[in-house]
Design a protein around this nucleic acid. Structure first.
Length: 819
DNA sequence: GACCTGCTGCGGCCTG
């Protein structure tokens, strides 16, 4: 441990004192580490003074007390995951410059930066630059990158927990490795919210090099409570809207000045916005809606209203999880499950956003089981059991993109770049063969695309360096590459626009594709009638009909985290032992007792298997409490294994707590009871056979093809439609499979399906757990409270895929023929 | 006892 000076940053301390601030202990701790030249990660709750902890110490170290003869070159970089955050940070970071870093200039560079400012920066970058991962990559792709960025001595990454587990984070890792190559003494500091694996997060950020972790302990009271429904004994067993909580929520909002109301989906936000206005028409103009499909101008208006304290309540999705600090927000309400402890803490932190003010979050359960979950998530949050996030391992699509970026940014020597890339945590084990494959892929497009010059993106110059050649073809490559930088791949979206011109927002092509002229839908809090699609725009008019279908967006999966699922199971065990200590569990008491009477309460160590015969067929419900993603894999696996033993056709249904198999024929229980159905033998083969893994991999490949630069998304303002993108990526998928089966991007697609979509590691762990558990079968005479939501889920949407049905039929015929 | 989940994030060409 290097010697720490007693007063590591006297000028920073003086600057704070002039404003009446006394540095917190953790701020001095960061300054001391920075003074010693160390890198590190600062973990603290929001609103605790992280920004100045990290920034002032760096300025003290990097800037002289007297103005330098002329403005120095780019010295410090500040990376944020969001443009709005970048703009906000730039203002805060500029404040101490005149005193602590005289002569320094500060600039902002994101996609929002005006072209005049961009041009000015291109001539000369400021001393400190606030930017995003994508804009940083674009800077690295400029020919003079080494001179322009080679002098960077410090990088700060804000909200690192947000980037860590994503390909965007890998993009940052690669950029840092590059900067580190130019300046081996580069100081890197990250800031993170609560995370289960802070040490790993720090190692990933600092490339495994020496670094320190600092805990920003600030007194912050966290209050989590639950809105208990009236007559909890009659609260609904299923459903996720929570319409019966309308009145209590309105009451809570009436009592507070400004509140955020979080929902899990955009359609849920739309519906709750309506419900609030239906109950209180006088709140029109004071209640607003905020989610990712709304037009930017609408969202900005809402954000301004929140900042200014003019709004009473905003109903939002995760679109307001991060970003600008909304000081006036007093209360946060969470409708439905928070799905994870980290998300809950993040959202709670949106209220009382200043040191010393308490954060308060109120859970609003939408069904009785969510009462149990509310008790569970509070217990887990207060015990600090927070989810971990892990860096992706060796995503080759990101590497391919980076190789082209670096080739454009002055070119590279293969040997040196291989070493550099392995300095990024995600590629620390990258083999030379994989690196050379990626290199060759950029050079010739792999074995199958050699005939197409569009995919000959880089070439080896006479001096051995790899560059993008300065030819018409090369210039076209450069242009397309810069347009496609980044790892965020979203589906094609259509503009929603009134016939008279006003733009309302965007909506997925898939949803609009299901509408016919005259169909109505609710969007942006308005009832709209669909007219036609033209030029990637859905034209609409005000609807006159009373009712509309609410749009559903195809979004990501949000399975319950392992931490939370375990916490729910622990609550069930409490109830089984007759301990109803929390108001939530007490309120869920009647339902839990019904469950105990009709069936049994699940508890750790016991797998509950309910079976029932109905007009629909033979039901089998299992409750592993492993999250819906794993349940989906498990349900498919069980259906496949059971129907192999004895021909049958199953409908599947899953939720976060359990799964249902509905068989056309009676289902033998023995394989479940003796545990053989949970065997790990040939797991991979069986999973791949049971799910349509090929289809999944092909879908996954769409993202990979985009990131690796195989598929071009079109020029700004004229995006290609989803169909075109799908067509071209599936073409590549097929071509590679046929003519280039060794293509490592195919391999990556398969790996991503197994790890992201099926979560094979968790599935394997769950199978192991279930084999170790005692298995208890109960015959039901009426649906149990736990099984009912599964049946409802199945009625809503049949999970049986055509493919599965067809395959099962084929299996059946084969079994028939074999006999 | 029965209805309706599935998020977020960024970037930017050429031509006259």
């Amino acid at each position: 441990m290097p010697r720490v000076p007693r007063d590591p940053a006297p000028r920073a301390r003086a600057w704070m004192a002039a404003r009446g601030w006394t540095p917190f202990d953790f701020q001095r701790e960061v300054w001391a580490a920075q003074a010693a030249g160390q890198s590190g990660l600062l973990h603290a709750t929001t609103g605790a003074g992280k920004t100045y902890a990290v920034w002032l110490g760096l300025l003290e170290r990097l800037a002289g007390a007297t103005p330098p003869p002329r403005a120095p070159a780019l010295t410090a970089l500040w990376i944020t995951p969001m443009r709005a955050l970048a703009a906000d940070s730039a203002a805060a970071l500029a404040a101490p410059l005149p005193d602590l870093a005289p002569g320094w200039t500060l600039g902002l560079r994101t996609g929002d930066t005006a072209s005049a400012e961009r041009a000015r920066q291109d001539r000369r970058l400021p001393t400190a630059l606030v930017t995003t991962p994508e804009s940083l990559s674009l800077l690295l792709s400029r020919p003079e990158a080494a001179t322009a960025l080679g002098g960077v001595r410090a990088v700060v990454v804000d909200e690192w927990h947000e980037l860590l587990g994503t390909k965007r984070g890998v993009q940052v890792q690669l950029a840092l490795a590059r900067l580190r190559r130019w300046r081996p003494d580069l100081q890197v500091w990250g800031m993170s919210a609560t995370l289960g694996n802070l040490d790993e997060a720090r190692a990933v950020l600092c490339g495994g090099g020496p670094s320190v972790g600092v805990q920003g302990r600030v007194d912050k009271t966290l209050v989590i409570d639950t809105l208990i429904p009236e007559e909890p004994g009659r609260y609904s067993w299923a459903g996720h809207l929570g319409a019966r909580m309308q009145a209590p929520v309105v009451e809570e909002l009436a009592r507070s000045d400004t509140a955020l109301v979080f929902t899990n989906t955009r359609s849920q936000a739309e519906l709750w916005y309506q419900m609030l206005l239906d109950a209180r028409p006088d709140w029109a103009g004071q209640v607003a809606l905020h989610h990712g499909s709304l037009d930017k101008s609408v969202r900005e208006w809402v954000e301004q209203g929140l900042k200014g304290g003019q709004l009473k309540a905003v109903v939002a999705t995760s679109s307001l999880d991060l970003g600008v600090d909304f000081l006036p927000v007093q209360r946060v309400l969470q409708i439905g499950s928070a799905k994870g402890v980290a998300r809950l803490l993040q959202r709670a932190g949106r209220s009382g956003h200043a040191p010393g003010r308490p954060s308060r979050l109120t859970l609003v359960p939408t069904n009785t089981l969510e009462l149990v979950e509310a008790a569970a998530v509070r217990a887990a949050a207060l015990a600090g059991r927070v989810e971990s996030r892990h860096s992706p391992e060796q995503p080759l699509d990101v590497l391919v993109q980076h190789l082209v970026t670096v080739a454009l940014g002055g070119g590279f020597d293969a040997e040196a770049l291989y070493d550099e890339v392995r300095g990024a945590w995600a590629y620390r084990h990258l083999s030379r063969a994989a690196f050379d494959w990626a290199l060759a892929f950029c050079e010739r497009g792999g074995d199958s695309l050699t005939a197409y010059p569009d995919y000959h993106r880089i070439a080896r110059a006479e001096d051995g360096r790899w560059t993008v050649p300065d030819t018409p073809q090369g210039r076209a490559t450069a242009r397309r590459h810069r347009l496609g930088v980044g790892t965020i791949v979203s589906d094609a979206a259509l503009q929603v626009q009134y016939l008279n011109g006003a733009r309302i927002g965007t909506i997925e092509e898939g949803f609009i594709g299901r509408l016919r002229r005259g169909d109505c839908f609710v969007f942006a809090g308005r009832l709209l009638e669909f007219v036609r699609v033209q030029d990637m725009t859905a034209w609409v008019k005000k609807a006159t009909k009373a009712k509309g279908a609410v749009p559903t967006w195809q979004g990501g999966q949000m399975p319950l985290s392992t931490e939370l699922a375990d916490a729910v199971l622990a609550q069930m065990a409490e109830a089984a032992d007759g301990r109803f200590h929390s108001p939530e569990l007490t309120a869920a008491g009647p339902m839990l007792r019904t469950q105990a009477e009709r069936s049994a309460l699940p508890r750790p160590g016991v797998l509950l298997i309910e079976h029932q015969r109905s007009r629909e067929g033979h039901h089998l419900c299992l409750y592993p409490f492993a999250g819906r993603q794993v349940h989906l894999g498990l349900a498919s696996l069980l259906a496949w294994r059971l129907s192999r033993a004895q021909a049958n056709t199953f409908s599947l249904s899953v939720n976060d707590y359990g799964l249902e198999l509905l068989g056309a024929e009676p289902v033998p229980l023995e394989p479940l009871l003796d545990g053989s159905a949970f065997a790990e033998d040939d797991l991979l083969d069986h999973v791949l056979a049971s799910l349509n893994a090929g289809e999944l991999a092909q879908r996954r490949f769409r993202e990979i093809a985009r990131i690796a630069g195989l598929v071009f998304g079109g020029y700004p303002g004229a995006p290609k439609s989803l169909k075109q993108l799908q067509a071209s990526s599936s073409l590549f998928y097929d071509v590679f499979r046929q003519y280039d089966p060794g293509n490592l991007l195919l391999d990556q697609a398969r790996r991503e399906v197994l790890s992201h979509e099926l979560d094979l590691a968790r599935l394997r762990a769950v199978l192991g757990r279930l084999r170790g558990w005692r298995r208890e079968a109960v015959a039901l005479s009426a649906p149990s409270p736990l099984s009912l939501p599964l049946m409802v889920e199945r009625l809503r949407e049949r999970l049986t895929t055509e493919q599965l049905a067809a395959r099962l039929e084929r299996l059946l015929r084969e079994a028939e023929a074999g006999r």
